[in-house]
Simulated assay, not measured.
Amino acid sequence: MTVQTYQGSCHCGAVRYEVDLDLAAGSGRCNCSICTKTRYWGTVVRPDAFRLRQGEEALTRYPFGSGAAEHLFCRHCGVKSFGRGELEVLGGRYYSVNLACLDDMEPAALAQVPIRYANGRDNDWFSEPAVTAHL
């Protein structure tokens, strides 16, 4: 396990955070309606691994689904750089960081991050959807 600290932000820079990640532990993409439309590519971390450095006041919440996940985006540029929530199946409180919003991540390193696909469209979160190339 190699944990490294990364800097992340939205497009305009109003929201900035720091997160400790082991990218070899993997990431996730799903085919639920919101992840498909936003092309969200996330990885889940415990609250102590995430530090919002700037922009809480710039975050807008989008209430969706069961409310277990807090969908957040920058009210200035519209980018969803992270979300947060609480789900027992994920071990309680969590943050989901959008890997595409890590500022100090090289494309070659991103290409090596393992991806697990989830079938959120059918509420079958622990199964891979039949088609994943578009995710």
Rank of each mutant, 00 (worst) to 15 (best):
A25R: 10
P47I: 12
F64N: 09
T38F: 01
M105E: 04
Y94T: 00
S27L: 09
C35S: 09
C30V: 08
D103I: 00
G67S: 11
G8H: 13
A69I: 14
Y6C: 05
Y95V: 05
R16H: 08
V89M: 13
R116K: 14
Y17H: 09
K37F: 01
F126R: 15
P63S: 12
E86M: 07
E70K: 15
R39Q: 14
E86W: 00
T132M: 03
E106T: 07
R16F: 03
E18W: 00
D103G: 15
W41D: 02
Y94R: 05
W41I: 07
V15C: 10
E70G: 13
D124V: 08
M105R: 03
P114H: 04
T5W: 03
A109L: 12
T38Y: 02
E56W: 10
L110V: 01
N119R: 07
C30S: 11
G83L: 13
P129E: 06
R93G: 15
C30Q: 06
E56D: 15
Q112P: 01
A130D: 14
D22H: 03
A111R: 09
P107I: 11
V113T: 05
Q112C: 10
R61C: 05
D103Q: 15
Y17T: 01
L59C: 07
S66F: 05
G13W: 06
G120T: 06
G67H: 12
R121A: 15
T38K: 04
R121M: 15
V97R: 09
D48N: 11
E86K: 11
C10R: 12
F64R: 14
F126I: 03
E57R: 03
R51A: 06
K37H: 05
V79L: 11
Q4S: 15
C77W: 00
A133C: 07
Q7G: 03
D22N: 14
V89Y: 11
F50N: 00
G13V: 02
L72Y: 13
G42F: 06
T132A: 12
K80W: 06
H71N: 08
D103M: 07
T132N: 04
N98F: 01
T43V: 13
S66M: 05
M1H: 08
S127L: 10
